[in-house]
Design a protein around this nucleic acid. Sequence first.
DNA 1: TAACTTTAATTGACTGACCAATCAAGAACA
DNA 2: TGTTCTTGATTGGTCAGTCAATTAAAGTTA
Lengths: 188, 188
Amino acid sequence: MPKIGAEPIRKAALINATIFEVGRAGSLDVTVAQIARRAGMSPALAHHYFGSKDQMFLAAMRYILRNYGRSVADRLPGHGKRGRLDAIVQASFAPQNFQRETVSAWINFYALALINPEAGRLLRVYHCRLRSNLMVALRPLAADPARIAETLGALIDGVYLRAVLTPGGIHAAVAEKLVFDYLDEALS
Amino acid sequence: MPKIGAEPIRKAALINATIFEVGRAGSLDVTVAQIARRAGMSPALAHHYFGSKDQMFLAAMRYILRNYGRSVADRLPGHGKRGRLDAIVQASFAPQNFQRETVSAWINFYALALINPEAGRLLRVYHCRLRSNLMVALRPLAADPARIAETLGALIDGVYLRAVLTPGGIHAAVAEKLVFDYLDEALS
DNA sequence: TAACTTTAATTGACTGACCAATCAAGAACA
DNA sequence: TGTTCTTGATTGGTCAGTCAATTAAAGTTA
């Protein structure tokens, strides 16, 4: 056997580099060469491992979505009556989901989801899981959990969007408070 | 004088074609040649009138923002206590702002705002005007107009985002109802 | 242990295609 | 005639993806 075990390390490095470069450029218009250089290898090696640029973007998107899912799961079931709900919202505004690179990657992956069916499918899975989680959390608390779940999901996305577009960037705490204030109102 | 009056016609055609092509492709990755062909002219003429591809995108963004502003103004002051507020929300979900091409153009212009300072400036103007309009409308109705204006703005954006990302697309009416239900709650 | 084999890892160089922007020249109209 | 309108042709540059060749680790054999 030859030198083994490089593949997972290289792939992880490329995924990190992809997110970093997309975040830095604020656009999917980054070259494979840029990403590969950032990850410390040649462009040819990036192609060797991922086959195509699209596959690299999709792998990066999967990584971000998996991270988000994990960060929600880690906080469940939470404490108290509203534990599940608080956990989900807090996870959505966790620092790592709120760094400039990640949020910038998110908005650009949203754009990717418009044109790449596989990316669209991934995003739909995320939306469904979020809605489902919110429904479970809301059912014991509200008369119309479906409506609140829908509103809450949109609100979280909207706050995200504004966070990355506001010049100084709004703080995670401010964004989170906005959402919690809505929840207090909706559940009262 | 020579053959005159072509400029405004050509520019309008190019702006329409830009929005159409960006919406169709779901991405800013459209070539000047595509846009020009759609507008019925040569790529060279597009450059002649706009100077660069970026300027074409910015002109298209200005056009969309101007349209939105006009559609709000047309509905003001509205009727009744909540007239101003209803007018703004209804304008945000007016059919023309909700067509696939327009919404797709919006999300991509959002992405553009991340990397193009001029685009960012335009978007900030839109955000400020929206917030200001909402404040005026909310001051007589709510104790904390600033918070509700912020939430409402984010909610509108979030609903927009989901509208274009949902496979079948949610109907404008459903989106609008979501926002109005929130308002009813917040103002009660 | 030394020589040999096998195979993953890795890259430099290249290709084929595409594209934004320019320019000089022609067409149309007043 | 003079001005605007219009385009074909060109240029300089970029980039995704390919390929042949090299390197080095791990096992194999004698």
